[in-house]
Amino acid sequence: MGKRRKREGMKLWQIVMLCLVYLFLYLPIVVVMLFSFNKSELNVNFTGFTTNWYRVLFEQRKDLWDALWTSLELGGISTVLSCIIGTAATIGMHRYNFRLKKFINNILYIPLVIPEIVIGIAFLASLSMIGISMSMTTLVISHVTFCIPFVIITLRSRIAGFDASIEEAAMDLGANQIHTLMRVTIPMLVPGIVAGGLLSFTLSIDDVVISFFAAGPDQVTLPIKIYGMVRSKFTPDVYALCTIIMIGTIVIYGGIQFLQEKMAARRGENI
């Protein structure tokens, strides 16, 4: 207290604004969750409570679980790959100046700004030109391509604030370049890598447009599966699956957050 003279509390309109926008963001999610317990199959009105759809989901919808698994696999592989090469690139671009740096940097911005559909068709068209048909590999490649820039930009904002003297101290104390990299630089970057990785994973898991073009007929990710239902109809068992995913994600995310705070507390001010 004391220091801030004005605006100790928030104004009424600000609180109302916050509530309204969060309501806007969450209302359809509440509907999805609610209708996963709906007796009627039609998703029109709530006719009564049942957990039947969860039973249906577990017993009869192997296709949905397969799609979820494909998505998780895709998201996992893409995230790990893009974190590895993205981290290397971030450190390299931070440390060294070289001729092509600006050029590479500019290419990195392409996926951030060009509409996804253009990326998707460009990928599909050029790969089919050289006779490669779409498969899990091409799907992973396409996802890594749009994840790398997000990893790099997330990391770059962290690495910019680094104290170069820590690395210099390591070198002065006799660590070689690789040793410094592995024992000093990368450990300092871990929170940033985790943040960039989470972002990539979120983007990858939710991606419809690029996957739509880059996936072969056998790679049905959850978003593709759901997109396929747009024309026919959504059954409440899909809602049930998404409710489970949502709750699962919150638990996992909470866990990561908790661990990070613990790690940060243990390492004190080093971060």
Binding site: G86, A88, M93
Partner: peptide
């Protein structure tokens, strides 16, 4: 060289799968 070794994979990747397709 060291710069290229670290940035190279990303650079090549983005050129091959982003720039050339466009």
């Amino acid at each position: 060289l060291p710069g290229l070794a670290m940035v190279g994979p990303t650079g090549l990747w983005m050129i091959a799968f982003m720039l050339l397709p466009l």
